[in-house]
Design a protein around this nucleic acid. Structure first.
Lengths: 235, 235
DNA sequence: GCAAAAGTGTTAACACTACACCCATGG
DNA sequence: CCATGGGTGTAGTGTTAACACTTTTGC
């Protein structure tokens, strides 16, 4: 090995994912009871170790996939955490990922199998190590992202109504929007295609279903557009 | 050691900093000729290894500080890079940091001592490993950040003129702004304090100097405000 | 027939862009 | 006195927030 690579500290590398879901009313966070001997029974983010032949993204995907059974979910790298004793057992650098899934896609079977559970964001239990800090960081990122990019849709079913979407954005920003302004803003983005069907069962009148327009979505992903009214209230 | 920590891959952890400077006309990038035996003479970002008792931020600060002699510079964590063979010698996870310094603060003495040099962003030499990718990522981040946050000021001297600031923003976004609209936007943010003095020497008339208002700056750091006119052209 | 949610338009205030001329000074 | 860069104002346009009533239908 070359000189300057010798005697350098080596660390374990962990990938921890902050997995958001939406149940129709509130934003929720998926946590697991990891079998960490040092802190049995403490809730934790979904995490795992980097393996020799993986990239960071691949590892994060593998870990989330193993635990949820879901493929191709929205996953984005957030932040590296590396305080020397953040993990008291051994020096570990953790890289967080931010994931958005539709609550209904994640079966109760998988939940039980992995001792996982959904938590309200405002009623989180005590978390392992610095995981609370990671969650706060991810929430901030979600808000920033959702304000300018069409990202929240990952949390909804394929077909959704405008009121559902509004509820989601209200949950993300923990505020309320005027429905006339909200629907105008969303529809004028050109991202949604109105379907013939109506959602029945929830309201008496029923609401029209929409789906994402894949063409315009791709472009919009990389651009900065406002996706919420009253941006001032958001920040 | 506990069961689940055994036999996990350990990696070297590198901190690489993308250091931007501004020379009054163009955005520049500080590179060094690191004594990497495998690729002698190739330019590289300023980087170094994480040490046992440091946090990531501390390590990045130490490395930049050692190399530039500067303290308390603006430094922000960006992204972790971890492709398995990104460093062919040994598995290394690199975490990039983004730094902004005033070119004049960095003495030519330090530059010579460390075999460093400033490069125009549009005329970069070949870079080590995946450092080009890191730079592109940082440029994108700089634009995003500067569009909404009062961040570019770090690149200027403590007292600066509006035309200087405009030149900086034009360099960041690689475009031109109308000076009337630009100064209106900047001044209306309430971030600047106009000083009595004028900058002399550059123009015949001389331009008023401004400094940052520390009170309003602190608040503005965390909020989303537009700092450039014609935001559409930016994205 | 009424309760509950969906859907829809207008206005007034503000913010943005585009644009052109005068000012101060050094040489 | 003139060339160079600094500094300012306005009109027109577009965008935003605030606001209330009608529609549908299940019960």
């Amino acid at each position: 090995m070359l000189e300057q690579y010798k005697d350098q500290t080596k660390c374990l590398v962990a990938l921890d994912s902050i997995i958001f879901g939406f149940d129709g009313q509130k934003l929720r966070l998926l946590l697991v009871k990891r079998g960490i001997e040092i802190k049995p029974g403490v809730w934790s983010l979904m995490g795992g170790w980097l393996k020799p032949q993986e990239s960071l993204d691949e590892a994060a995907e593998r870990i989330v996939s193993d635990l949820t059974g879901l493929q191709n979910i929205y996953l984005e790298q957030l932040t590296a955490f590396g305080r020397p004793n953040r993990d008291p057992i051994e020096r570990t650098v953790a890289i967080t990922y931010f994931a958005l899934i539709n609550v209904d896609d994640y079966s109760t079977f998988e939940i039980a199998k992995h001792q996982a559970a959904w938590f309200d964001l405002d009623a989180l239990p005590e978390l392992l190590f610095d995981h609370k800090e990671m969650v706060d960081n991810a929430v901030a990122r979600l808000r920033n992202k959702a304000a300018f990019h069409p990202v929240g849709f990952e949390l909804l079913p394929e077909k959704f109504t405008i009121p559902q979407l509004q509820k989601l954005y209200e949950a993300i920003f923990n505020t309320e929007f005027d429905k006339r302004n909200f629907s105008r803003r969303i529809l004028s983005s050109g991202l949604l295609i109105k379907l013939e069907e109506k959602q029945k069962g929830f309201s008496k009148k029923g609401a029209f279903l929409y789906k994402l327009n894949p063409q315009t979505t791709e472009k919009a992903i990389d651009s900065n557009l406002y996706f919420v009214p009253s941006i001032d209230r958001m920040v």
